[in-house]
Nucleic acid binder design. Structure first.
Lengths: 223, 223
DNA sequence: TTTTGATAAAAAATCGATATTTGTTGACAT
DNA sequence: ATGTCAACAAATATCGATTTTTTATCAAAA
């Protein structure tokens, strides 16, 4: 069945490979927002059949990264300032909920994972490339929420996180996020979370999003 | 391309038909929670090819109504009490948000749609079958939120609504929901919404969910 | 000119067949 | 008896080709 060797050596289906690849291409803007996604074109680009491409696009539809047009194929989800701001607002609402639940369920094991993911993010900030940082950054943010014991909520938070990433890349080709000093903001969140202070952690997280949001709004104002 | 005549005569793709049919079958329990969904079996049952079935299942995966098992096909999402309660909790949180925004944006046009959808639901309660009532009931609840100007939020609310429906069918084969007197609860919500009293409307809506939740928890306790 | 309608090209959706994987059974050795 | 392994059966995943739909082109008519 044409097994694919995934980067780390794990074997995956062609559909999964196509899904991950297309997702990455959309998040980074390699496939531009609003762009028509032609099956044939993607088929050759990913060197796979039409069925896996089609299925991958269907899956991306649920992530709101791809839109399905009636009988006219697919396109990358359009970007707009309104969409960006909606994502920001919802992230604040949902992550506040998730973070408070997560902290309420705090365990030593969770704390350790949290500290670890923060360390890895700092390490990736220092010497990794952008993809490595992005991965570690998401891992940290999701680790904050991961203890919430609410799979659907976490799923939504993850989706919104990814939708937001796309706007980071749009705003500045994904480069200068690290140039702003986010390290202290991340530490504030981590410290409060580990301390078990839900309100402080939530405040710090919301502040982080508000500041980042303001920071990105200007470059995105012409959307 | 094998156009399908949808019930109301609108032409749709085979994929869309399969999606809607399978969704209905899962919501009503015709395809039981946790049940293995074999392509071949569904293919003959829906009288269509493997590709549309496969794509429809992929789409249902994003609705959390179907799970994809690594290389072993699909199954209907399992049901559990924890899942039911998570859905209830999230619905309260998200619909509270959406309803308040909706009311904050109130317009005469929205009010009219709201009243209309409520009337239609009452009418369907009186003389319609279960599917008609279910459709009208969802239309009313979504109409309450529809003015919120937050597409993603509305999407999530719609998803959670559907997930919850499945538990209604599970609890009582979907029959006795109307036997409880929900009419007055619906009227309380409607009145407060039309009056523009967001807090009262939200209280009424939350009460509606809490009561319904309690009502369903007992029959579902053996999940 | 603008509109209309037919025609041709491009693309999407679907089908049928094939290859690959998972699961199952039962003989054989321990 | 129990565990292992090969052969077989069932089901999934994928491909290649076909059908259908949409989009583009262009000539003829208003």
């Amino acid at each position: 069945m044409n097994l694919m060797q995934h980067s780390d050596g794990k074997e995956t289906s062609a559909t999964r490979t196509a899904y991950l690849t297309l997702r990455q291409m959309i998040l980074t803007g390699e496939l531009a927002a609003g762009e028509k996604l032609k099956i044939e074109q993607l088929r050759t680009r990913l060197d796979t059949g039409a069925s896996p491409v089609r299925e991958a696009l269907s899956l991306l539809t649920s992530d709101m990264l791809v839109e399905r047009l009636d009988q006219r194929g697919f396109r990358a989800a359009p970007a707009s300032l309104a969409n960006f701001q909606e994502i920001l607002t919802l992230r604040c609402a949902l992550e506040d909920m998730a973070l408070r639940q997560s902290i309420a369920n705090a365990t030593p094991d969770w704390e350790e994972k949290l500290v670890l993911s923060h360390h890895r993010m700092k390490r990736a900030t220092a010497d990794g490339g952008i993809p490595e940082f992005e991965e570690a950054h998401k891992a940290f943010h999701m680790a904050l929420l991961d203890n919430a014991d609410s799979p659907i909520l976490l799923r939504y938070c993850g989706q919104l996180y990814d939708l937001n990433i796309r706007y980071r890349y749009l705003a500045a080709a994904g480069t200068n996020y690290r140039k702003r000093n986010v390290a202290s903001e991340h530490e504030d969140i981590l410290d409060a979370a580990v301390r078990g202070d839900a309100s402080a952690a939530s405040d710090a997280l919301m502040n982080h999003y508000r500041v980042t949001g303001d920071y990105l709004t200007a470059p995105l104002s012409d959307l």
